[in-house]
Design a protein around this nucleic acid. Structure first.
Lengths: 202, 202, 202, 202
DNA sequence: CATGAATGAGCGTTCATTCAT
DNA sequence: CATGAATGAACGCTCATTCAT
């Protein structure tokens, strides 16, 4: 097997297979996807898959390792572009929704398989922690800026935020009618910041 | 196959197999679980499984249809016990966390498989809608009671709430150290109601 | 297992099962027939079958041993009723067609399974030989009476006759439109006796 | 699965499996034959069978579709070589006996399974009709040539001829002592043409 | 005698993986 | 590097048979 990280030979084929695989995984689920189907979708022979990936598991692993990590990298970038905490939070949510909307296959696979397959647990945890770290920083900054209240359980806030976005994406994925996902960012952030409680007469 | 609804024969064995199956599904995932493993776990012969269930899929289907529906029934009951909207919301969250904590296998299977298997999508949607309806009612009541603010997107609020609880349970399931899940209810409700924003100097 | 030959106990049930089995065999073929289906058709429990028959094979064996042997007994009787050889031949063919027409299930099973299952070969051979003996006698008598020509290969004549009747029944069984089988007897005998050759100007 | 019609891959293996399967079917019958036994007989792995055939049924189907159709093709050819009707009839019978004698496995499978398996009924009917057409043509020609008498029921004559040959082959297959099958052709044709009746003093 | 729930051996089929070309 | 035919372990499922009631 070639190391695709420093793979000078045919990086094309590596990506073609990876994309094809994600497509098949998205459509059929990891377990119902066969290596043959992936090969056909990628336009290569079955055996060729094994020149670029150790085995079927390894394909999904690469997906988590490279593809989604890349996406999570843009989250970091987007967050950094924000000035204050609220802006950073909004940028994160917006980026999250945008990127998942942009690559539906990725979204499906990530949402569907991430919780399913024990084998990949550790990679998922990595990604989740990356996300949690981002949120953590934002919260701390927000508290320093006094836009977020003190005394919050940071770990709970992280789950509060990731859980909501996750569910919003999930609903979008299963919806019959397609609507713009990114457009929901502001309403979501508003909920995060203000909750559902009636504001007392201030 | 016998009708398990009527439990005409050996309801014991029916439940033993169902519990055993959920255990195996929880540990290995649906696709890695084999009928043989389930039979062994239940202490019956492979063929016996097929006296109570149509096939492997059918076992999971029964799980969604009976076991989790029952749990969701207690949610309704708990909500009804609450007087005002905030209490109802708290009761729902508490019940949700408690029931999933009480039956860890159920929790694992529900969280892991619910998003995964196309075949069962319709059952999951049923359960989700049941949940959404509950939340919807609570929100409306809260708005009438003026504890929840107007102008909320009800569908977004539902996802906001389910998503958070979902993620909280998920984190608990994957945590190394076991902690009390139900105890988080109040903090969660507080987040829902007040958000993370700093209260303006009142 | 009870010996059904001298079975004082519930000969009814024995015959009910046998008839039911032949019906199921006729409809589905021996190998696709299950003991359960037979039991259901007979209105008894699966286990009851084994009180009257050693196993699934044994049911078919009883069929060959008793049911069809009985039919072949009437062939003998019909032949004996005929005066000259030609009459005897005609009676045999008529009886053959009539009996198979009368019990379609028997006909189907006999025609379909007789050539198929090695296990029963010996019983089939018995029946065939019984038939061959009948034909043999008729041919000899016919030659003595000078209605049948000398120099015939008796064994070939037997196959000539059984084969034709067999095929006529077979065609009837598979025909879409139902017609009277017995009515073909005279035309068949005419073919046997005169062949298809044009009679030379006598 | 590869298209065996085009024999794009390893036509050798395709034929090896087909021959092996027919051998196993001949020895054990279709239902008692297992894919494993066929694979072992063909010297390939179980899975390899499925590269050449859709499933176990498909093997028998190919047998009927290609192997026996080919044989029936030679029947046509042999018939066409005959000048007058009697010669044609004789050629048909001779070819039929010869071909089935040449490939005993084919003969066994054809005789045994043809009447048995509902699934293949349509293919058998095809073959039978092909045969019937041949005989029909011969009979008509014979009547025109005035070697066969008028007023025959053509459909009955067909069954008369096929049935006899069928039975002759059948007897041969089950005989303990092997004798030459083709040698019986003339005696059979003589029976067809002249019947068993004594010729009146002409 | 009768039942039918339980058994488990056995089968057809799939598919990840290998390797000769 | 690329191929795809070949492999065979493994699985879901069926069903003849048994036996406790």
């Amino acid at each position: 097997m070639v190391d695709p990280a420093q793979n000078s030979v045919n990086p094309d084929k590596y990506h073609r297979i990876l994309e094809a695989a994600i497509g098949v995984f998205a459509e059929q689920g990891f377990f119902n996807a066969t290596v043959s189907k992936i090969a056909r979708a990628a336009g290569v022979a079955d055996g060729t898959i094994y020149l670029y990936f150790k085995n079927k598991n390894d394909i999904l692993l690469h997906f988590f390792n490279y593809k989604t990590k890349e996406v999570f990298g843009t989250f970091r970038h987007e967050v950094d572009k924000g000035g204050n905490a609220r802006e950073k939070l909004r940028n994160l949510i917006k980026a999250h929704l945008r990127e998942f909307q942009k690559d539906r296959n990725m979204a499906v696979v990530f949402q569907a398989e991430a919780r399913q397959i024990r084998y990949f647990e550790v990679y998922i945890k990595d990604l989740t922690n990356m996300y949690f770290d981002l949120v953590g920083e934002i919260v701390v900054q927000g508290q320093e800026e006094s836009v977020f209240r003190r005394g919050l359980d940071p770990s709970l806030v992280k789950r509060f935020i990731l859980g909501t976005v996750d569910e919003v994406i999930n609903t979008w994925l299963h919806a019959a009618r397609k609507y713009d996902l990114e457009a929901q960012a502001d309403a979501i952030v508003d909920l995060f910041v203000n909750g559902i409680g009636a504001t007392p007469p201030k």
